[in-house]
């Protein structure tokens, strides 16, 4: 690791979860992050640490990342006990080092839930969320000529409501933050975005039943209305969508 520390930069102590593979036991390792400026994003800070590790001939820390613009939902780390680091409406990639001070100790852990097995270090398998999507988060349409633009009218209120739910980027922070490892905020958002629209009505019953069933089969826990999920959600998905999921389920039961 480079010993040189540039003037005006921060040095931080990182305590990071390292795990070689899904079946290997994991442990915390301590690293020093040197030459970090306040302009580094959290992931860029890890890039710096990884370069040092590579230069030293060591295995870099594996973590998920993709767009680094806060929109793809790939980055996934629990930082000092909070999914995405606890900045309001912020993903890890948009968390910047200006929120830390020189000399800070930072715990970095992967999402922890039975439904999200750890693949390596900070990377977890979030396919369970995809399986919930596949179970019903779609509408079936007949292909053919493009439909008329305004053939199905949707009120502004409904469109806004649906868009609020559709803002979910599927990062899984809700599951990571849930004391029960439940995926109700995710599933609630996915069900609600269709429930509010006319196109979603045709398959409404099958959708809610099969999505709940798959959610349960994937090993997610049950919602106990703690609402930690909304607090860490980088898109601030509202827990009212969980109530909507419950309501859609009850509607489907009597339909």
């Amino acid at each position: 690791m480079s010993e040189h520390t540039a003037h005006g930069t921060m040095t931080l102590k990182l305590i990071v979860w390292r795990q070689k593979g899904p079946t290997e036991p994991g442990r915390f390792e301590t690293y020093l992050a040197r030459n970090i400026t306040e302009h580094h994003s959290f992931l860029e800070m890890l890039d710096v640490v990884n370069e040092d590790l590579i230069n030293d001939g060591k295995e870099p820390i594996v973590f998920d990342h993709d767009c680094r613009e806060g929109i793809c939902g790939t980055c996934s780390q629990v930082i000092n006990g909070l999914a995405h680091g606890g900045q309001t409406r912020t993903t890890v990639c948009q968390l910047h080092m200006r929120t830390f001070k020189d000399g800070d100790t930072i715990y970095i852990e992967p999402w922890r839930a039975k439904a999200f097995p750890i693949l390596k270090d900070l990377m977890v398998d979030r396919n369970a969320l995809e399986r919930i999507i596949q179970a019903g988060a779609y509408t079936s349409v007949n292909t053919g000529a493009a439909p008329d633009g305004n053939s199905i009218l949707i009120s502004k209120e409904d469109a806004d409501y649906s868009m609020d739910a559709a803002e979910c980027i599927g990062c899984g922070a809700c599951v990571a933050a849930c004391p029960n490892g439940a995926a109700m905020l995710f599933t609630g958002a996915k069900v609600s975005q269709f429930a509010a629209l006319p196109q979603g009505q045709v398959e409404a019953r099958e959708r809610v039943f099969s999505m709940i069933e798959v959610m349960q089969k994937c090993g997610f826990g049950n919602c106990a209305n703690h609402y930690d999920c909304q607090a860490v959600c980088p898109k601030d998905i509202d827990v009212k969508f969980i109530a909507r999921l419950n309501r859609e389920y009850l509607k489907a039961l009597v339909m």
Binding site: N80, G81, L82, Y107, A115, P179, F220, G221, Y227
Partner: peptide, 26 residues
């Protein structure tokens, strides 16, 4: 349900902060 929930979240975080849930709820 509680037993299931414990099973769904078996590995605890080394550092855990609860931003919104309450002592009463947990």
């Amino acid at each position: 349900l509680t037993l299931e929930n414990w099973g769904a979240n078996p590995d605890k975080y080394a550092v855990s902060r609860r931003p919104r849930s309450t002592f009463a709820g947990r």
